[in-house]
């Protein structure tokens, strides 16, 4: 209960007091509703071949058609689903993983903590992008593999922050008191520590989603994405591969990229607002 309440409080606060956060929420609601209503909004099935290839924009196809005659607008609309799915899934899984690891390390301390911190330190120093490219290339392009790759490198940052937060909360008097009363470790973590670190975790889901969406798009652009998934990165990949710009079909490139930037900005604004809420020291009008 405490968890839900604290998140609700955060959202309320941000909506009322943080203009940038509100802007982020608006963007995300906009793109989110596109994703949810994709089958109502999209004029065509994004996989259906509805016109000759490489058609310039026209009333029937406001963004034109792609290299095999699919409607680009429909592709972009369905792309919201794929990109949000990848971003949110990857970010949630890595945050949950990081949360568990961070809580364990922070609460139990000792050798457990030393071992986990060691691993975290090493993972943080490993250059992730080149290794992500290697992993994606060899695992084979599918959405789930991309999510897997993003999780492998995504949990580390969360774990580090949660660990240090847990460390400081553990020392507080009420936690000490519950311990003295004889509450189980699980109970203490669940009742006292989790609600305090939850906003941080939520901030990480939000910020992590940005980088997950961007990384998925980059991998797709390099040709390492799922070829039949209609993600924005995949649309860009095909546009680039078939020389869309030289054919004057610049909307084919412009719109999907714009959506990536927009969603990224939305998540970042919201994430920063949550961070502000958690750590009011940096708050500004």
């Amino acid at each position: 209960m405490g968890l839900v309440k604290s998140i609700a409080n955060a959202v309320k606060y941000i909506a009322l007091h943080n203009k940038k956060g509100l802007f982020g929420i608006v963007i995300l609601l906009f793109v989110g509703s596109i994703a949810i209503l994709a089958d109502k909004l999209a004029p065509y099935d994004p996989y259906a071949i509805v016109a000759p290839p490489f058609q310039p924009p026209s009333p029937e196809h406001p963004l034109g058609t792609n290299d095999i005659g699919q409607d680009i607008l429909s592709e972009v609309i369905y792309g919201a689903r794929v990109s949000l799915y990848v971003g949110l899934t990857a970010a949630s899984i890595s945050t949950i993983l990081g949360l568990v690891v961070g809580l364990i390390a922070g609460y139990f301390g000792g050798y457990v903590d030393e071992a986990i911190s060691g691993i975290i330190d090493i993972m943080l120093a490993i250059p992730s992008l080149p290794l992500i490219i290697i992993l994606a290339a060899y695992l084979g392009p599918s959405l789930n593999n991309i999510i897997l790759v993003l999780v492998i490198f995504g949990w580390v940052g969360v774990a580090r922050v949660i660990r240090s937060q847990t460390l400081s909360i553990r020392e507080r008097t009420y936690v000490e008191a519950s311990k003295a009363v004889g509450s189980s470790s699980f109970g203490i973590i669940f009742r006292h520590i989790l609600p305090s670190v939850a906003p941080v975790a939520v901030a990480y889901v939000i910020l992590g989603a940005t980088s997950a969406i961007l990384t998925e798009a980059s991998l797709s652009f390099l040709g390492l994405g799922d070829p039949t998934a209609k993600s924005w990165g995949q649309i860009l990949y095909h546009a680039q591969a078939r020389n869309a710009l030289y054919l004057g079909l610049w909307l084919w490139v412009f719109v999907p990229g714009l959506f990536i930037a927009l969603v990224g900005a939305g998540f970042t604004l919201l994430g920063m607002a949550i961070e502000d809420y958690v750590n009011p020291k940096l708050r500004y009008a």
């Binding site: 996989y47 290299d67 392009p141 390099l222 040709g223 390492l224 070829p227 039949t228």
Partner: peptide, 18 residues
Amino acid sequence: LTISGRPEFERSAELIMG
């Protein structure tokens, strides 16, 4: 099964899939 990073193959496969 086809080769990634080759739009020509990927698109042909997509059509056949349909």
